[in-house]
Every structure is written in structure tokens, then in C-alpha cells.
Amino acid sequence: MKYKRGLCILLAGILLTGCSSNTMYNEFEDGQQIIDFISPDSSEIQYADSFAKDLCVVPVNYQNKKDPFMTAKASLIFDVTDHKILYADNVYERLYPASVTKIVTSLIALEECDLNEMVTISHNAANITEWGAKKCGFQEGDQIKLKDLLYSFLIYSGNDAGIAIAEHISGSVEAFAEKMNQKAKELGAVDSHFVNPHGLHDDNHYTTIYDIYLFFEECIKNKTFLDIINTKGFTAHYKGADGKSKTAFFPSTNRYLVGREQAPENVTVIGGKTGTTSKAGSCLTLYSKNSNGHDYISIIFHASTGNELFAQMTRLLEYESK
């Protein structure tokens, strides 16, 4: 029997909180739980218990003492080595993710593609018209290796690179969005819906910080992904439509990597993904380690400014050194 991963997360959350009730969540319709009753020794529970060992599970009714310094709409930090919640606030609210969306796009590219494939930049990718949209500056007809495109996409957060990746994999942004939503179902990211590969605003493009944790947990298993997010700056080499060589340098948007912010003592920031739009506020997903060798994922959505975002992220990272 095939089980939905989202079901397993919720079952595991009940199990880990010691609930003795036979009431279990077994289906979702547009984010609404439907209650059913199953036997406590059933295969569903056994499967969920095993599945939970690989994840940090936040029960739906989980509450920790609110940190008054954490004013962003949603935040979390997990010890992913021991699968422990260090802090979690509002992890299941649907919010706009801005360029944190690029984690989802990158996961699909890393899973499905040969990174040596050549990508040709389309007219659509080269001509984003949305005001304020960050672009790498690729021009129609440019040809670039997918690996270099992915570096540019994650490090610099160029939205034109995102469209090029989506079209290369699926033929169109719309078809790629369907693939993103299918991947969300596979990972149990039940409160997400994506309509584009980059995170430029759309009212129907949303996720939760817990769902992003599920995507990011998969991404950090990939060495190439880790190499990319740990890079301070990247020089892309590619060819124009006329066959002439081009280069472009893309600095990281991660302030910890470029020295604009300092992590707490005994904490090493590996990397992550920033995101900012007017409606999403300032967002950040981060992977870090402490001096004891433990790995951590921390996420903040909807901080009021970039300075507030990184100040609050540093606060979360202090939980590692306690």
C-alpha cells in the first residue's frame, strides 16, 4: 500500500507526543485535515513511526515559549542530527516564500538533470518585465552549462536563470510548476502550491516554513547543492548567440558568507537561500553546524527588513551554542 508522506508526518507527530487516542489524520483537502480512526497497531502507525526517525516533526498544536526578539511571522531551528526542535513558531501558516522558492527548483534540477547539459536562454527568460526583479542579465540565445546556471541561480538569485532552468527541464514555466507541485506531494509538503520557479509574487504561490524544511532537508543530501550554497561568489563562463565567450561574476546574497554578518561563536554557516519581495518580506533558509558536529536547519519568513532578518537569524543560531 502506498502512503502519503504528509500523512506520515502527522501520524508521527501524534506518536511522538505520546497521544493514546486512536484518532489520526489520514487525508488532506486544500490543507484541511479529515479525521479517521485506525488501529494503534496498524501498519500505518508502524510506517509513520519509522518515517519520523528521519525528520524533525512539529505536532500541529506544538507551542514553545515565544522569544520576544523573534518578530518575523514564522521561524524555526531544528537540530537535524538528533531530530530535535530547538525553536518553532507558526511553522504551518501559508506564506509567500519569495526566492526561497529556488530551493525547490534546484532540488528538481539536481535530481533530474545532467549538470553538463547546455541550456539556451529563451526570449521569455531574458525579458522579465516585473519591476525590481533581480536578473543575472543573460540575453536571448546565450548558451550556458546547467551547472553554471544553477550556481548563478542560487548564489545571486537571478530570476532569469530560474525561467531558463524551468523551460530546459519541462518546456515551459507552467509545466515546471506542475512538477514542483508533484514534488511537494512526494515530500509531504501538503501546504504548498507553486506557480513559478523563482518566487516572484503570485497570490497562488505559497508554502510554509515546515514545507521548506522538507525540501531543504532533501537538498543538503546533495554535495553539489552544498558546494553551491557555500560559495561566496561565482564567475559564470558561457557563450552568446554569436558564439563569443562571455563571463559574469555573481556575489552571494548570504551576508554570513560575504562577511557582512557574524554567526555566534562555535557556529559555522554552510549556506542557504535568501528571498525578498514586498509581500513576502525578507526570508532566509540556512544550513549550519556547531562545534559539536551537529547539523542545523533554520528558517525565517516575513521579517520586516533585511537587517531584521539577519539579526533574528543570528538569534536563532544562538540556540545551537546553548
Results as ranks from 00 to 15, higher is better:
2 K>S: 07
15 L>I: 06
15 L>C: 03
18 G>Y: 12
32 Q>T: 07
33 Q>F: 11
33 Q>R: 11
41 D>I: 11
41 D>R: 15
44 E>P: 13
46 Q>H: 14
53 K>Q: 15
53 K>E: 12
58 V>Q: 06
60 V>W: 15
65 K>P: 04
68 P>A: 01
72 A>C: 14
77 I>M: 02
85 I>H: 05
86 L>T: 00
99 S>F: 10
99 S>C: 10
108 I>K: 09
111 E>V: 01
123 H>T: 07
125 A>N: 12
131 W>D: 14
133 A>H: 02
140 E>S: 07
144 I>H: 11
149 L>E: 02
150 L>V: 07
181 N>F: 11
184 A>Q: 08
184 A>H: 11
184 A>P: 12
192 S>L: 07
194 F>D: 00
195 V>P: 01
197 P>T: 00
203 D>A: 05
204 N>H: 10
206 Y>H: 02
207 T>W: 13
208 T>K: 09
212 I>K: 12
212 I>C: 07
219 C>W: 14
220 I>K: 10
226 L>R: 12
230 N>C: 05
231 T>Y: 14
235 T>H: 13
244 K>C: 08
248 A>K: 15
249 F>R: 13
261 E>V: 02
262 Q>T: 06
262 Q>H: 06
270 I>L: 14
271 G>Y: 14
273 K>S: 06
274 T>S: 15
276 T>N: 15
279 K>N: 14
289 K>N: 05
298 S>K: 03
316 L>C: 03
